[in-house]
Each structure stands twice: as structure tokens, then as C-alpha cells.
Design a protein around this nucleic acid. Structure first.
Length: 468
DNA sequence: TGCTTGTGTCATTTC
DNA sequence: GTGAAATGACACAAG
């Protein structure tokens, strides 16, 4: 527990502090190394090498989590060769941000909101998501540093949506996550103490990349797993919940706010503008995730003045484990991992070739998922028990009060009966006469009843002797 | 700023 | 022996 914090937090904080302010959206140097100013003609071989190296780097969880600034050292060119494993349809989200924004550098002079819209509506992930958060920051989603991030974001936006991580599916949003929630993946509250292997390693990523269908998916990294998650997102896992948001993209209101900039095909090397998507139809998990991302960025819907129902406007963010699963390219959903029976789960594992770290992660996810449900049930039971015990306590207290009143009443009755008995006793003595016709002294005699219901008049001293 | 609440996670025990 | 469930304890974020 504590060890978790010890080994995680310092790293995170280090990263955050060292990366600020441009860490998430591009370092300050990006102003000079702004992608727009960078010749697009970077040698492809070099770009590919860098691409590969970067992907390997970014599979390292820490880097993913902390969004190591990538922009200055490597800006994926619009011609990057990342091929989505699952087609996204005509609503491509992987177009280069630079491609999307560069032609519109003039708008960077525009007010922030306009710039923001221009950028993130293009499908750029981080800024769009960020735009959402800064436009309508959810109190729970924005840490105290939100205002700072806001400024950073604005600065970043003015820099022209520089950061291009479109081929780093799990990193693009992570940057946003740190805005919406600093926690996040390495939040102390969730780390497996040694049970989780290093989340990713280049080899793992490479191994897994062959099977993982969502490599190009970018995820909504708001603080999903923890802290009010239940109230903020439905129980169902991402494949389902994300489907709920797809229709957002066919929302007429939103479409009216969609930017006029071209949409770029998801195809690598494709700069072909696509028709403005009116209907986002994602069938694969990848699509779903992108859809979720869109809709969550689309929190920006608010900034776009598109009023959606809350449950659609705020997509459920992925939990840390889900993001980890994506990072490690686990080829099945967290829901499956957690909810499958043991046999099915083991069979599922045998059906896929998973690395050690992937297996460990899957088992961690399963354990945590089950424990999470167990904890929820436990707390629910606990509360129910408390409620039940409180009700029982009330009942018992009422009963006690009733008994106390009854006791007082009985005592009162007993006193009356005693009084009557004493009177009766005295009266009886007045009728008792000795052989001389003299009444017996009540001090010297007493009446005694035997078991056979006969009553005898006995002297007091004799009575005491008999009693002895 | 400190307290409370809700949640996720871990460690441990029990079934 | 193993997996799941239960639960206390802890950390964290948000109000």
C-alpha cells in the first residue's frame, strides 16, 4: 500500500513537475519546434524508426502515464505509418493534428474557444478532451491545478494543436487524463504491490501488438476507475458503454458544429480529406473506444454548445485497468477478464498467446475487478447492516421504554395491592379474638398460610422459629 | 486547511 | 491447493 505510493508517486510527481508546463501539450520548446514549422519531408525511414522506437517507449506504462513530452524529439509526421488494426470508418481520428491545424494557423489568433473548436473538432484527441475539461470542468474531474492546466491548454492550443501523438493510442488521452485527473494510472490507490509486473515493456508491446485489435484506439483518460467512478460511469465496461456514445456523432446539433476542416482518412499516408462524418459507426472495440474518446472529448460537446443528455455527454472513462489492458494490448475486454468463470477465463487465456506481463496484468485485472465488486458488495452489506442494526436498536429502545413504563405501572399496582393487603391484614386481626375475647396483637402474632391453603395464627417468635 | 465521504486497492482470512 | 468471497485497512480525490 504505502510502498505503492512510495514507488509511484514520486515518479509521477517528478514527471509532472519536470514536464510542466509543456509536458502534456508540448513543451515550451514546441514553439520553436512546432510541428507546423517542421518540414514535413522528414526522411521516412528515420520517421519509421522513430515511430517504432516511440511506440516501444510509449508502451512503457510510466511513459504512457506521464506523457513524456514527445513533440520536440519526435513529431509523428502526417505520413506516419501506423495502420489501425480495426478500421474506424470514415470518421478518422488519427489524422495528424498538425495536418488538421496547420492549415489554420490563422485561427490561433482567434479567441481560445474558437481555436479550441477548430482544433479538437478535427478529431485531435488531447486538445479536444482538454477543451472539454477546461471549458466545463467538472469539479471532480479537475484537480486544483486545473486552472494552470487551463492556461497550459490555451497556450498549447495557440501553439496550434502541436502535440501529435496520433500513433500513440494510449498516450494521447493520457495527457488529458492528467488534466482531468492527476491521479491516474499510478495513483497510489490502485497499484498492485509487486503483483503487477512492469506494465509494459517494448517486447511485450511488440508481442502483443500482433493480436491486439485496439492498438490505435485512443482512450478517454479521465479519472475513471477511482473515486466516484460508480456515480460517474455505468457499471458496464467500455465495449458496451462506448457504444452508447457513438450516436453522438450523428447528432445534428453537433454536426453543425463540426469543423469545416477536412477529415483525414485513417489510412496511413493518407491526407485525403474525407467527407465530414455524419454518422460514426464503430463496430469494433477500436471503434468503440474511439467513439468513446470522441464523445468524451466531446465533453467538448458542451463547449460546442451542444446540449446532450448527461449520460451521453459524459462518457464513462476507462478505468486504469482498462487502460492498462490497452497499453499492454490485451486482446479481450476487462469485462470478460473479470466476469468470465474460471474455466472460461482459463480457456480464454489459452486461446491467446500472452506474454508474462500480459498474463500477470490480466490476472491482476481479474483479481482487482472481482475485489472491486466484492468491496462494493461488502460496503453495501455493511451499510445495510448498519441500517438494520439501527432499526433494531430503535426497536429495542422503544421496547425498553415500554418495559420501563410497564414496570412503573406494575410497581404502582404492586404498591396499591400491598397497601390493600396491609389494610386487609389489619382488618383480619381485628376480627381475631382469643379465648378471653381479646383481640390478638398484630405485633405479637401473625397469619401464616400453609401449602394446603390453611391459615394459622402463630406467634411472631414462633413464626421466626418455624421459618428457620 | 481539516474533516467527511466515497471509492479502489491490497492483504488477509474464510469458504 | 486454488479461486472466490468477505472484510479491515489504507490512500486518494472531491465536497
Amino acid at each position: 500500500m504505502c510502498s505503492t505510493a512510495n514507488y509511484v508517486l514520486p515518479l509521477r510527481r517528478t514527471c509532472e513537475s519536470s514536464g510542466a508546463p509543456g509536458r502534456r501539450y508540448g513543451s515550451a520548446s514546441m514553439t520553436s519546434s512546432f510541428q507546423g514549422g517542421r518540414p514535413h519531408g522528414i526522411a521516412e525511414d528515420m520517421g519509421q524508426d522513430m515511430d517504432l522506437a516511440w511506440q516501444e517507449l510509449m508502451t512503457i506504462t510510466d511513459l504512457q502515464e506521464f506523457n513524456v513530452p514527445a513533440e520536440s524529439s519526435y513529431e509523428p509526421s502526417p505520413y506516419n505509418s501506423v495502420v489501425p488494426l480495426a478500421p474506424i470508418g470514415d470518421y478518422s481520428m488519427t489524422q495528424s493534428r498538425s495536418a488538421a491545424c496547420e492549415p489554420n494557423t490563422a485561427q490561433y489568433e482567434e479567441p481560445y474557444s474558437e481555436v479550441r473548436q477548430a482544433c479538437h473538432h478535427l478529431g485531435s484527441t488531447a486538445e479536444a478532451m482538454f477543451a472539454l475539461n477546461v471549458t466545463h470542468p467538472s469539479p471532480r474531474m479537475l484537480p486544483s491545478s486545473a486552472s494552470t492546466h487551463h492556461l497550459e491548454g490555451k497556450e498549447q492550443m495557440k501553439m496550434g494543436c502541436i502535440t501529435n501523438r496520433t500513433n500513440m493510442p494510449w498516450t494521447t488521452h493520457r495527457s488529458n487524463m492528467h488534466h482531468s485527473s492527476v491521479d491516474d494510472l499510478e495513483s497510489d490507490s490502485g497499484l498492485s504491490l509487486g503483483s503487477s509486473p512492469p506494465l509494459t515493456s517494448p517486447d511485450d508491446a511488440q508481442i502483443a501488438s500482433t493480436s491486439y485489435p485496439n492498438a490505435d484506439a485512443r482512450i478517454t483518460y479521465s479519472n475513471g476507475e477511482s473515486h466516484g467512478l460508480q456515480t460517474r460511469r455505468p457499471q458496464s465496461r467500455f465495449p458496451v458503454e462506448h457504444q452508447l456514445h457513438h450516436h453522438l456523432y450523428s447528432h445534428p446539433a453537433q454536426s453543425s458544429y463540426l469543423p469545416s476542416q477536412p477529415y483525414f482518412n485513417h489510412e496511413p499516408n493518407s491526407m485525403t480529406p474525407l467527407p465530414k462524418p455524419q454518422h460514426y459507426q464503430g463496430n469494433t472495440l477500436n471503434d468503440q473506444i474511439v467513439g468513446a474518446e470522441l464523445s468524451s472529448r466531446g465533453c467538448s460537446h458542451q463547449s460546442m454548445h451542444v446540449k446532450q443528455q448527461d449520460n451521453h455527454t459524459h462518457p464513462a472513462p476507462l478505468s486504469r485497468d482498462e487502460r492498462r489492458a490497452l497499453a499492454l494490448k490485451i486482446p479481450f475486454t476487462a469485462e470478460k477478464i473479470i466476469n468470465l468463470p474460471v474455466d472460461d477465463f482459463n480457456e480464454l487465456l489459452t486461446q491467446h498467446t500472452l506474454s508474462e506481463s500480459q498474463l500477470a496484468l490480466v490476472r491482476d485485472i481479474r483479481r482487482r475487478g472481482k475485489n472491486k465488486v466484492a468491496a462494493q458488495n461488502c460496503r453495501k452489506r455493511k451499510l445495510e447492516n448498519i441500517v438494520h442494526l439501527e432499526a433494531e436498536l430503535d426497536q429495542l429502545q422503544a421496547h425498553q421504554e415500554q418495559l420501563a413504563q410497564q414496570r412503573i405501572k406494575f410497581q404502582h399496582s404492586l404498591a396499591i395491592v400491598k397497601c390493600h393487603l396491609t389494610d386487609l391484614y389489619s382488618k383480619v386481626f381485628t376480627y381475631l379474638k382469643d379465648e378471653h375475647g381479646q383481640p390478638y396483637s398484630i405485633d405479637e402474632y401473625c397469619l401464616q398460610q400453609t401449602p394446603d391453603d390453611k391459615v394459622y395464627l402463630v406467634p411472631q417468635n414462633m413464626q421466626g422459629r418455624q421459618q428457620r
